[in-house]
Design a protein around this nucleic acid. Structure first.
Length: 620
DNA sequence: GAATCATGTCATGTT
DNA sequence: TCAACATGACATGAT
């Protein structure tokens, strides 16, 4: 591309240089037209014109699709669009002739068929196959054949929309797909019938061991005459699946071509073409690998697990306790050297951070946070841990260290991805950072420790030490399973697998530590809850104390007032008392006292004192 | 570099 | 008796 840009402004001298380069690179299959400015200008104009036509077609298709959707109604239960029954005529479900469907749930009428065919046409017209085929076929993104639904059933006389029409030739968004086209893709993918077909094909893919691969020319549908013939290597997912299980996945495009050549028409039975194959578009970084992975590439778990590419997803798939949990891990991925080598920039670094997921909060999805040591290029184990291993030669960790040395196969690992090394695989390298970001974001989303105080997690990528150990010892199940399985299931799992002493010790330690980790987290959570509860209780007690103090002060004040009132009343009453001569009683000699029945008596103080002394003397 | 916090781990007791 | 759980204490890494 760079070269092409330069050629656009080249001088004659440059053209001479190009001649030299052309002569040198002629074996690579480059054509002279590539370097011809006039030719490229014409090509550019043709592309513009074609693009305009495509936009017009797209607009027409949208209008037709809207008109079609107007005839449909959304089934609120299934979320599918079903034909709107004619208001005048009742439903004729029992009378209507059965349409040829592969899925009973997928009922279609003529409108659907028209729409879907039109959609296919839109697909075909939107992404015409180019003659210029990138030699680097995306090996790690196997396309999945799309089944033919009832109206998509393709007879041999009616060749299906070929794998080439969609998969190989169409530009990916990063290769210049306009937003309109991308939007059109999204609309197409959102069609229920298309998804239905995709799902059906996925089932067929799971059930069928081998499909004969139609040739590109055969796959051309006559319904779309605008399609140029594709003569480029097409990645067949089915073939790749077979290769994955038996051979090295990282085959060169030439090998792929050979593979296709060997599996083509002579072997293909005629009825095999009833299964129309619509390979998904060539995967690219932003278009298919992530967003449409579940739609276009429903690869079997086995296939995913055995694929080195997309290992992150593979491990997650394999880690699911329900199904693939007993699948042995890739020994290369289990090697600690694996981690070391993965730090190299041109290797499959996106597979580094595969985390089987240790439950950290009781929920199995939570991960143990940790910083990625891969990013720093260092080994997975911390220095302290390595020191610990060195200092405890008899410990289990020392055994793990011994196992590390056994798994040290750097050359093997380096050779695990020859295609990327040879070709450079620019699109894969472009994909890695995005993949990593997605993984980090995903793991952050899953990271929901119970004790976080809403602080954002930055340590989320690294494998936990136990996970690293488990990988190092090739434990054939996930740390998550080891920790969270019930004891019976765990014992059963142990009995099913022949583990050596080191593996058994590690598994037990992982289970103990994992459970204790969760217990510690729960303990701290409870402790925090207790603290919070005590704080609340303390606040309420403080409020209660304040209230009582306030009440006490009020009562004291009230009592004081009452005493004052009583005293003034006493003095008033006492001052009003007179003896026979009309003299006032002395307050020092007399006092007023109230009896229990409420009567008030004037008691002489001296007399009282005298009486009390007299009583005292009589007792003596 | 010390202080603080979050988390993992171990030892030990309890259920 | 054993597994699971609870918890104090300590270590470690991050901030």
């Amino acid at each position: 591309m760079m070269m092409e840009m330069e050629v656009m402004h080249s001088t004659q001298q440059d053209m001479d240089l190009i001649d030299i380069l052309w002569n040198q690179d002629i074996d690579l299959g480059a054509r002279r037209e590539v370097f011809d400015i006039n030719h490229r200008q014409k090509e550019h104009e043709l592309l513009k014109q074609r693009k305009l036509e495509e936009e017009k077609r797209l607009h027409l298709m949208r209008e037709q699709e809207k008109a079609l959707l107007a005839q449909l109604q959304l089934d609120e239960e299934t979320g599918e669009y079903i034909p709107r029954p004619p208001p005048s005529t009742p439903l004729q479900l029992g009378v209507t002739p059965l349409e040829v469907t592969q899925n009973g749930d997928f009922t279609q009428e003529a409108g659907d068929s028209m729409s879907f065919d039109e959609c296919l046409q839109l697909l075909a017209e939107t992404f015409p196959v180019e003659h210029t085929q990138t030699p680097s076929v995306c090996l790690d993104t196997p396309a999945v054949s799309v089944p033919a639904s009832s109206n998509m059933m393709m007879s041999p006389e009616q060749p299906a929309l070929s794998t080439a029409t969609i998969s190989s030739g169409q530009p990916t968004p990063s290769q210049g797909m306009s937003p309109d086209l991308e939007e059109a893709w999204m609309e197409l993918l959102s069609l229920p019938e298309l998804q239905q077909c995709l799902n059906m094909q996925m089932e067929d893919t799971l059930q069928t061991t081998t499909y004969p691969l139609p040739t590109s020319a055969e796959a051309q549908t006559p319904s779309y005459p605008n399609y140029p013939t594709v003569q480029t290597p097409i990645f067949n997912p089915l073939t790749s699946i077979n290769n994955v299980t038996t051979n090295n996945l990282n085959v060169s495009p030439a090998e792929l071509m050979n593979t296709f050549d060997g599996s083509l028409p002579t072997v293909a039975p005629s009825d095999a073409f009833r299964q129309m194959k619509v390979d998904a578009p060539q995967l690219d970084t932003s278009f298919s690998g992530e967003g449409f992975g579940g739609v276009f590439y429903p690869i079997t778990e086995q296939d995913e697990c055995s694929s080195r590419h997309g290992q992150e997803e593979n491990e997650r798939m394999c880690d699911s306790p329900s199904k693939a949990a007993f699948t042995h891990m890739d020994l290369y991925s289990l090697s600690p050297v694996d981690s070391m080598d993965r730090s190299k920039p041109n290797l499959t670094a996106e597979h580094l951070d595969s985390d089987s997921g240790v439950s950290t909060n009781g929920s199995p999805n939570a991960r143990s946070p940790g910083i990625s040591v891969y990013e720093s290029g260092s080994f997975s184990y911390s220095d302290s841990e390595m020191e610990e291993m060195d200092q405890n030669p008899g410990s289990a960790e020392s055994d793990y260290s011994e196992m590390f040395s056994l798994n040290f196969e750097p050359d093997h690992f380096m050779a695990s991805d020859p295609a990327s090394e040879v070709t450079g695989q620019p699109q894969q390298q472009e994909k890695k950072p995005k993949q990593r970001k997605l993984d980090i974001a995903e793991e952050r989303g899953l990271d929901d420790a119970p004790f976080t105080k809403d602080k954002p997690k930055k340590r989320s990528v690294r494998l936990t030490r136990d996970e690293q150990r488990a990988k190092a010892l090739a434990i054939p199940f996930t740390v998550d399973m080891i920790i969270n399985l019930p004891v019976d299931d765990f014992n059963e799992l142990m009995s099913k697998h022949q583990l050596n002493e080191a593996q058994l010790a590690l598994v037990r330690d992982i289970r103990r530590r994992g459970k204790n980790k969760v217990a510690a987290q729960n303990c701290r959570k409870r402790k925090m809850e207790n603290i919070v509860g005590l704080e609340g209780e303390l606040d309420s007690l403080k409020e209660e104390r304040d209230r009582l103090l306030n009440e006490k002060s009020k009562n004291t004040k009230s009592l004081k007032e009452m005493k004052q009132q009583l005293n003034s009343l006493y003095l008033e009453v006492f001052s009003m008392l007179r003896d026979e001569k009309g003299n006032c009683y002395s307050s020092s000699d007399y006092s007023l006292q109230q009896s229990t029945d409420g009567n008030v008596f004037l008691v002489p103080r001296i007399k009282k004192t005298f009486k009390s002394e007299k009583k005292h003397l009589s007792h003596l």
